[in-house]
């Protein structure tokens, strides 16, 4: 579904990604871990071109995103949901409007269809009663669940999660991870940048360790955690586990 070839990204003279090659298949749950500053968030943000790569290509459903016009890119992003560390809900709109804004303005649904779909998603994330609240009236965990619902309303083919629980109070992490597990169980293709090792082990179909701008190691969760090959991963795991 997503094919990444020789992906490079520099900010000025600072090279963050030094050539990433990987393929993400439909239905896969790829969990990306690594030390901070390793480039894992940049990698994720290159997948939907929020960061424009400086080299290589990202091929999504057969088309190279790095060769696309902005106009085509916006169309592609409708199919790639993204969840941010800091939620980025629209504070001036009610929860319902947060969910329906994109599908209505992009004319992929009528207002009625969007509201119906939004209602379904809100029930799914267990926050139907908050439809007429504003984002600032919610807790962090609730905000993130709404952010996930907002992305889901667009019927994405893949969901990208950029440290979705890193900004949450510890007692709210569970509810968000629970929702992501549910999503994974439904067969959603997911790429998740996270520090939650328990989640990675339980939900990931593949764990990717990014260090120094390259994929230092990737493997199935069992092998990844039980029998890491590279010394860098061993050192990293000994610190976080």
């Amino acid at each position: 579904m997503i094919e990444v070839k020789g992906l490079k990204k520099s900010f000025g003279s600072l090279e963050i990604l030094k050539g990433i090659d990987t393929t993400i298949e439909k239905g896969e749950k790829v969990v990306v871990i690594g030390p901070s500053g390793s480039g894992k968030s940049t990698f994720l943000r290159c997948l939907n071109m929020l960061e424009k790569p400086t080299g290589g290509s990202v091929i999504f459903e057969g088309r190279d995103l790095t060769q696309m016009s902005d106009k085509q890119l916006y169309k592609v992003r409708e199919k790639m949901g993204m969840v941010f560390q800091h939620f980025h809900l629209f504070p001036h709109l009610t929860i319902r409007k947060n969910l329906t804004l994109a599908p209505v303005k992009l004319k992929v649904m009528s207002k009625e269809e969007a509201e119906e779909s939004a209602g379904k998603m809100l029930k799914k994330v267990g926050l139907y009663d908050k439809a007429d609240s504003y984002p600032n009236m919610l807790s962090g965990g609730q905000k993130q669940r709404i952010a996930i619902a907002r992305a889901l309303v667009m019927n994405p083919d893949v969901m990208l999660f950029d440290e979705p629980t890193s900004a949450l109070d510890p007692e709210m992490v569970g509810e968000v991870l629970e929702l992501m597990k549910q999503l994974a169980g439904e067969g959603m293709t997911m790429v998740v940048v996270t520090h939650e090792m328990g989640f990675a082990r339980e939900v990931g179909s593949r764990i990717m360790f990014i260090d120094g701008g390259v994929i230092a190691e990737e493997n199935t969760p069992d092998k990844f955690f039980a029998d890491p090959d590279s010394p860098r991963l061993k050192a990293f795991l000994s610190k976080v586990l």
Partner: peptide, 26 residues
């Protein structure tokens, strides 16, 4: 916050629509 632009973009809203419906009202 630049995150508002990114949230708009990630949903497929182009710069003009993001500006019009998300940024300017705030």
């Amino acid at each position: 916050d630049n995150g508002q632009f990114e949230a708009g973009a990630s949903l497929g809203l182009n710069y003009t629509k993001t500006m019009l419906y998300i940024i300017i009202p705030q």
